[in-house]
């Protein structure tokens, strides 16, 4: 099995595999986010306390939960890259970082735009908000470290260690609303018990969460392919692609 798996660590094969997977991820992402957002904006019932302002939930919660999931994905890829020296895993981690940073920014911004009408303030320095801000800085740190070394093997190692150490922040974000008193509400969607939300509101939310996941997957594949090309500029198959692109 290891031999079979290792063959996918070959740059050309992983480049082609990513290309084959891309349309599936992209189509699913567009369809799910389209359905989820339309359903949430037009058909989900109004919240009896928050009115229509609660509709921000359909981007805020998907962005926030996926910002953590993307981080775990990035840290896992970094771990694989560090332990088994698989370069393709390092490239995948480097591809996820900028996407995760944008998603985290969206989670923070939509949270602020929701906090202003509901809490009366754009920002408070409480545990949930602060730890999510730390997540944004972790992403930016990984991006900066990876960019600051000319030798990308070294760069991936430095950025990978930061990414792995930063995993400690993920449970802090997740449980911050239970461990400390916060303006932020605790989790609404529960896996083990019944969610404290009616189905009409919940289904579009779940669809959008899944849609954001697919979108992050699609963008990761796009950036991964470009990263593979950038790191393999000396290989004949990449040179052929470069010549074809320049001739266009």
């Amino acid at each position: 099995m290891w031999k079979w798996l290792n063959s996918y660590a070959d740059p050309e094969r992983s480049y082609n595999l990513a290309g084959k997977m891309l349309p599936w991820f992209a189509c699913l992402a567009i369809a799910l986010i389209g359905v989820g957002t339309t359903w949430g904006m037009l058909y989900a019932p109004m919240d009896y306390q928050q009115g229509d302002s609660f509709r921000i939930i359909y981007i805020h919660v998907p962005a926030a939960s996926m910002s953590m999931a993307a981080y775990m994905g990035m840290a896992t890829a970094s771990f694989i890259g560090l332990v088994w020296q698989i370069k393709a895993a390092d490239w995948a981690a480097a591809s996820i970082a900028p996407i995760g940073a944008v998603i985290t920014f969206i989670a923070l911004f939509t949270g602020a735009a929701w906090g202003k009408p509901m809490w009366g303030t754009w920002w408070v320095w409480d545990a949930r908000l602060t730890s999510e801000l730390v997540l944004l800085f972790l992403y930016l740190g990984v991006i900066a470290l990876y960019a600051s070394f000319e030798d990308k093997v070294l760069a991936a190692r430095a950025a990978g260690i930061l990414a792995i150490v930063g995993v400690i922040n993920i449970p802090i974000i997740k449980y911050s609303v239970e461990w400390w008193s916060s303006l932020h509400q605790p989790a609404t969607i529960k896996i083990t018990e019944k969610s404290t939300m009616t189905g009409d509101m919940l289904y579009p939310l779940l669809i959008n969460i899944f849609g954001f996941g697919m979108m992050i997957g699609a963008l990761t594949l796009v950036r991964f392919r470009a990263e593979v090309l950038a790191r393999n500029g000396m290989r004949p198959w990449v040179r052929e692609l470069a010549k074809a692109e320049a001739a266009k």
């Binding site: 900028p98 996407i99 950036r223 392919r225 470009a226 090309l229 950038a230 470069a242 320049a246």
Partner: peptide, 17 residues
């Protein structure tokens, strides 16, 4: 983000060429 990501491949290939 999407536009930047889609343009990345072309920028890399032009750089290599």
């Amino acid at each position: 983000l999407i536009i930047h990501s889609l343009g990345q491949k072309r920028r890399v290939l032009i750089e290599i060429s």
